[in-house]
Design a protein around this nucleic acid. Structure first.
Lengths: 285, 285
DNA sequence: CAGGCATAGAATAATATATTCCTAAATCAA
DNA sequence: TTGATTTAGGAATATATTATTCTATGCCTG
């Protein structure tokens, strides 16, 4: 939690002088960075000592430390954008605000997604993907596109991957899975009926099931042997699965990169696939 | 460019005292933030005044300003990760380093992509998409997935969109386009032969062509009426089109959000599509 | 209503920063 | 080579900033 948010949260339980100082900092963090404690006191109509005490009450050694904390918070704000930190994208929003909210929530989803999966689980999933005789990707709707993207990438590494956007075909394929095979199932809600049934079938047939779902408890991850999670910032970009898709892509990209790391001939494979595709490029660019 | 990089770049052309101070700051930025000018002088074996002068030579009013700049740079480092700022993901990299490099380059691509397209061009593209009788999406390989993702989204808004992953089908469809129609063509390189031919055909038939390509000059954007650009940080995540795809998605997501903003019944459409899909969800989650 | 307690400003002490000044070394010109 | 001139860089100092202590005031509680 950034210092600005922290101040904001505590604002109500503060004494008048502190509240006034805190409010000013929240409203004008940039200006505050250029003010000395005395100057800030003048701006807020309070005393210089109150400013210092304010800083100390927040747990900092003094005003200077507070300034550093604010500067840091400001710098991270472009990452998780300015002002209305928890705003949904609204009808009246300006172009710039929409931009910031969109980028901000995309970034948040990405960061949280890598944060909620610990290295150990990722490592286990990698090991399973490495050893798999055959990998089957399951996912419908938006998740189908992520499944396909991941499938393409694994194919580039020479892995034996199967994916079809038609869930009936997926189901038929799942019926051929065996103990050495892996089902990689994607569903943000974790309760898409087709994906769930496919996972159940794969599980019955002894295949290892890796489920990539949202954080809350869901049927799909209950079926799975390995559970990986995605975090989507639905708060800000409501009514579209943009961030859920970004989170899934972040996770599959990470797995892909890590697979490359562990496969010594990976770059060779990728190079070959690029050369092959380049035949289909225009000759004079 | 961050202040740490700037110092690093100028290091060679600095006088001994300044070089020593600069080196210390580059090596221990965290520590530096907690040191006073005098304390830093002791650490580096130089005088306090040299520290202040060092700050001023870099263009800051004084030591305090330099500290703020360093703090900011440090804070942004998690965004564009630590240390080897221009490193590709290497074989020996640790899990954390890979994570940082991956997230960092994803974020960079997103930020740069919104930065390279000015509001005016985006606005024109939106207007064209709004007025289009029919929108045809073209794109092969990884771009095909982005095209499909964007197509799904526009369908949710009730727009008349066409996409098929098979380039022959795309070409056949393009042959039916007319002056009121729009071809939305995606290709990072801008020289995928199929996409290019489809765009040429669409253009001949009088359709408006919107091209989404990388920044460098390319055949596809030359054919187009409207040129939008994507920025991919291929530097760090080499040998895969991860960031190029992220950039394309960022751009199409932005267009989608902006279309929603300008269409009063958009949320209704989306709501209806969600209700419709929810029939396919498991009943007891 | 007295005593304790919290608030907050004034005054002051302590620190930190910026400037000035000075010296020694380096560079340059004749 | 030598004297003039510049430059680097530290010591000293002036200034500014920050932190602490002290005190007045109001407020609550017993």
């Amino acid at each position: 939690m950034s210092i600005l948010q922290k101040i904001n949260a505590q604002l109500d339980s503060m004494a008048p002088a502190d509240r006034q100082i805190g409010q000013f900092i929240i409203d004008n963090p940039d200006q505050m960075l250029r003010l000395s404690s005395a100057a800030l006191a003048v701006e807020t109509g309070r005393s210089q000592s109150s400013v210092v005490k304010f800083s100390q009450k927040l747990g900092y050694a003094g005003y200077m430390e507070l300034k550093l904390a604010v500067s840091e918070a400001k710098a991270q704000e472009w990452t998780a954008p300015a002002g209305m930190i928890h705003g949904t994208i609204e009808i009246g929003d300006s172009y710039l605000v929409i931009l910031q909210k969109l980028i901000g929530s995309k970034q948040l989803s990405m960061q949280q997604t890598v944060a909620v999966n610990n290295e150990k689980d990722i490592g286990i999933a990698l090991e399973i993907l490495r050893k798999a005789r055959r990998i089957h990707m399951a996912g419908v709707g938006a998740s189908s596109l992520v499944a396909r993207d991941f499938a393409y990438k694994l194919m580039k590494l020479g892995r034996n991957v199967l994916h079809d956007s038609d869930s009936h075909v997926q189901m038929a394929n799942a019926s051929t899975l065996g103990p050495d095979d892996v089902l990689f199932a994607l569903s943000y809600s974790g309760d898409s009926i087709e994906t769930l049934r496919i996972a159940e079938l794969a599980s019955q047939r002894g295949a290892t099931v890796i489920a990539v779902t949202g954080l809350k408890d869901n049927p799909l991850s209950r079926v799975a042997n390995i559970r990986l999670y995605t975090f989507a910032d639905e708060e800000r970009v409501r009514s579209s699965s943009i961030t859920a898709r970004d989170a899934q892509l972040t996770l599959t990209d990470l797995l892909f990169i890590l697979l490359i790391q562990g496969q010594s001939d990976a770059h060779e494979y990728i190079h070959n696939s690029e050369v092959a595709v380049s035949v289909l490029k225009a000759e004079h660019p």
